[in-house]
Nucleic acid binder design. Structure first.
Lengths: 211, 211
DNA sequence: TAGATTGTTAATCGATTAACAATC
DNA sequence: TAGATTGTTAATCGATTAACAATC
C-alpha cells in the first residue's frame, strides 16, 4: 500500500531465502549472484533482486551478494534476534511436541507460560514451564505481558480464548486450531498451521496431476 | 495456463471455503449468497463467485448457494472422497502425533505404512500399523503402491529419502522437514508444513504492526 | 412479475519478469 | 579498464474487483 510497505508475497518468501542462505553459509560459500541463487531456488534472478531490494541494497554490482551478510540481514528483517514473549494455550499431545521440540529463540520468541483447562495437565512441567490453569490467564498476562499466543487447543476453545487474549495485549497468534481468528479479529496478526488444509490441497494436487 | 487450469491462489482458498461451509451446514443454514459469505470470510463477493465458478455453476440466480450442495462439491473437488495410499516416514514424536491425531480419511488418504531407521521404534505399533525399517521401503512400495509420503524426518534424511521415493511412484509429499523437495524434484507435488517459517513470519508481522 | 443474485465480461490493481543504465 | 552483476525502471502477466446482463 503505502511506500515502504512490503507485500505479503515477499514476506512469505523470506524464510525460504533464509534457509537457502543458511545452507550455503554452512557449505562455506562466500558469495552468490542472483542468477545462481535463482537457479538453485527455481525462481527468477529478477524476482530475487526485486525482493531483496525492498529492504536495501544488500548486493554489489559485479560481485553479487555476500552470503554471510545477506543471511544476517534477512534474519534481522524477520526479527530472529528479537525476544517476543509467548504463551502456549493447550498442552495436549500437539502442544507438548511443539513446545518441547522447537527452539523458539531461533525465531525470536521466548515461551514464558503454558495453559490448559485439564486438571490432569495443570501442574505438570512442559518445556521447563509449570502448566497453569487457563483461569490464571488474565493475572499472568497482566504481570508478564506476552505479545504472542500459540494456540494448540480445539477450535471450540479457540474462539473464547481469542476473545480474552486480544484485550490482554496479545498481538500475534500462531494458530494450530481450525478457528478462523482473522475473520473475527482482523487486526490480530495470525499465522495458521492447518494440517488438514495442507493435506486437502495435496489431495487435490495428486488428483489433478498432468492435467 | 491452459484453459481449465485452476490457479494455486484459488486452490489455497478452497479448504477455507470448505471449513466455513461446514460450520454453516452444522448450524443448519440452508443457503447463502456470495455477499453474505464474503462478509463472514472477509473476502469480496466477486472473488467468491469467480472462485466457485472455476469449477461450475454451483449457485442459482436470485437465490444464492445451497450450502449442503456446495460443501459436497468443494469436498469432491479437493478429493476428500478419494482414497490415496500414504506412508509415514519418520516415527519420532512429531510423526506419532501426526499419525495418531489426524483422521486421514477426512482428507482422502489412508495411512498404509510407517517407517523409521531407529531400531527402538521399528516394530512398535503406531496408528494401528507396525513400524517397518526404512530398508524395507522398496519392497513395501512395490507391493502396496502408495502415492503419498508424509515426511516427519530431519532434513538430512529427507534428501536421500526423496531420491528413493520418487522412483518408487510417490507423487505427493506432505513435508514437515526443512528439506526443499520442490527445488530438487520439481515434478513432485509438495505441501510443506514448516513450523519455523510460520513463526518467523509471525515474528516479522508482530515487529512491523502499525507501520 | 419484480427482486435478488448469479455468471461472466471488462477494468483495475498488484506481482512478476524483462531490460538496461549504473557501478563495483 | 573490461566484465559482471546489481538496482531500478518499464513491460507483461495474472489475480482481484467492479459492473451488469442473464436468469432464477
Amino acid at each position: 500500500m503505502k511506500n515502504g510497505h512490503i507485500s505479503s508475497s515477499v514476506i512469505k518468501r523470506l524464510p525460504r531465502y533464509y534457509r537457502f542462505l543458511g545452507h550455503l553459509k554452512k557449505q562455506g560459500v562466500l558469495r552468490i549472484s542472483s542468477s545462481e541463487l535463482a537457479e538453485k531456488m527455481r525462481l527468477t534472478a529478477s524476482q530475487i533482486r526485486q525482493d531483496l531490494n525492498r529492504f536495501g541494497g544488500f548486493g554489489q554490482q559485479g560481485y553479487g551478494y555476500n552470503i554471510e551478510l545477506l543471511y544476517e540481514q534477512i534474519g534481522e528483517i524477520l526479527g530472529i534476534n528479537s525476544d517476543v514473549k509467548a504463551i502456549m494455550l493447550g498442552v495436549g499431545k500437539l502442544g507438548v511436541v511443539v513446545a518441547e521440540n522447537m527452539d523458539f529463540k531461533k525465531q525470536g520468541f521466548t515461551l514464558v507460560g503454558a495453559f490448559d483447562i485439564d486438571q490432569n495437565v495443570v501442574g505438570k512441567t512442559v518445556a521447563g514451564l509449570k502448566v497453569n490453569h487457563t483461569d490464571c490467564l488474565e493475572e499472568f498476562c497482566k504481570e508478564h505481558k506476552p505479545k504472542a499466543a500459540f494456540l494448540c487447543v480445539p477450535s471450540s476453545a479457540a474462539e473464547e480464548l481469542c476473545e480474552r487474549l486480544v484485550p490482554l495485549g496479545i498481538k500475534g497468534f500462531w494458530n494450530f486450531s481450525h478457528y478462523d481468528i482473522k475473520s473475527e479479529h482482523p487486526n490480530a496478526e495470525v499465522e495458521n498451521v492447518h494440517f488438514s488444509d495442507a493435506l486437502m490441497r495435496l489431495s487435490y494436487k495428486i488428483k489433478n496431476t498432468d492435467k
